[in-house]
């Protein structure tokens, strides 16, 4: 893109797929306010929630073209642009939210990956926001080990990896759009689904699927994308402020996320949901071949090993 001329500042347009009550929205609007204060009003961020500017895949194109300045995008979306991102989307790769966040902050691990789209797409990955531990929830339960899932139709996103993941965990993966899951669970078309606790409760799936098995098979991850040309046009001082405020945003987001998760668990319990622990080792063992088959290149394996080492 065109660079060189420093830009004085502007109100950046940030596209988000979540609603105004979601931790991501709250953390990101605070990000904008702190940025504005720290740059004496030169830079600001306006967050557009609810996908009003388009679904993630389309908004990434708009950020790439510069019509939208920033966007939150899921790992699956970035995987379509650079397969190397796939490693961070694998089940069991992160031990938990803290491990995930420490990896995302380690330039030695993710640095090359986060700048890999700058040349070809004019996209810079500023960092990531956790989307929490994902668990299985079912109409009938409890689910304690893989064989308990035999024959159960479990909803997954339309993704090759997630289909393989659920099949490996013992269920029958059923791709379906998220909006249809409630009625499908109710009608018995589905036996279960998998997600984080916040979505489980905000989508009211706790009304129809009362068993949550704490499989923690995956830690969800969203990325913050920024148009690279815009970043280059910032003065070094302003850019440093932006990066610093972003790191604070990640911390605030984790706090909000954990608090909302607690609240979701409490309200689910109050409405009759039963949470149970599982034979985690058995599920991880079942998922090992899925991880193995995804690590097709040396780069991917190296990245995976660096991430695993960071957990120790």
């Amino acid at each position: 893109g065109v660079s060189g001329n420093a830009q004085e500042g502007k109100t950046m347009v940030l596209s988000l797929n979540q609603s105004e009550s979601h931790p991501s929205y709250i953390a990101l609007t605070d990000f904008g306010e702190r940025l504005k204060a720290a740059t004496d009003g030169r830079w600001d961020i306006k967050v557009y929630p609810n996908e009003t500017l388009g679904a993630q895949q389309e908004v990434i194109q708009l950020v790439s073209d510069g019509s939208v300045d920033m966007a939150i995008a899921s790992g699956t979306q970035l995987e379509n642009l650079n397969p190397e991102f796939a490693t961070l989307n694998l089940p069991t790769v992160f031990k938990g939210i803290d491990h995930q966040i420490s990896v995302l902050r380690d330039k030695g691990i993710v640095g090359p990956l986060f700048s890999s789209l700058e040349e070809s797409k004019d996209l810079t990955v500023l960092g990531g926001l956790t989307q929490g531990d994902r668990n299985l929830y079912t109409v009938k339960g409890p689910i304690k080990e893989p064989k308990d899932l035999a024959g159960m139709k479990i909803r997954v996103q339309e993704s090759e990896l997630h289909i393989k993941m659920i099949n490996a965990m013992g269920g029958a993966a059923t791709p379906m759009s998220y909006g249809e899951v409630y009625t499908a669970l109710q009608a018995g078309v589905l036996d279960g689904a998998e997600n984080n606790e916040i979505s489980y409760v905000t989508q009211k799936h706790n009304e129809v699927a009362k068993y949550v098995a704490r499989t923690r098979h995956l830690v969800g991850l969203d990325y913050m994308l920024v148009n690279s040309t815009l970043l280059e046009e910032m003065t070094p001082e302003d850019r440093a402020i932006l990066e610093a405020e972003w790191q604070k945003t990640v911390d605030e987001h984790v706090k909000l996320w954990n608090a909302d998760t607690e609240k979701a668990i409490e309200s689910a319990k109050a409405s009759g949901t039963k949470f149970n622990d599982v034979d985690k080792a058995a599920f991880d063992k079942a998922l090992a071949p899925v991880v193995e088959s995804a690590l097709t290149s040396d780069d991917a394996r190296e990245l995976y090993e660096k991430i695993t080492e960071a957990a120790q």
Partner: peptide, 13 residues
């Protein structure tokens, strides 16, 4: 220029 793509993309999607 940017508008041309925004318009085309919005129509398509």
């Amino acid at each position: 220029e940017k508008a041309s793509f925004v318009a085309a993309q919005r129509m398509f999607t």
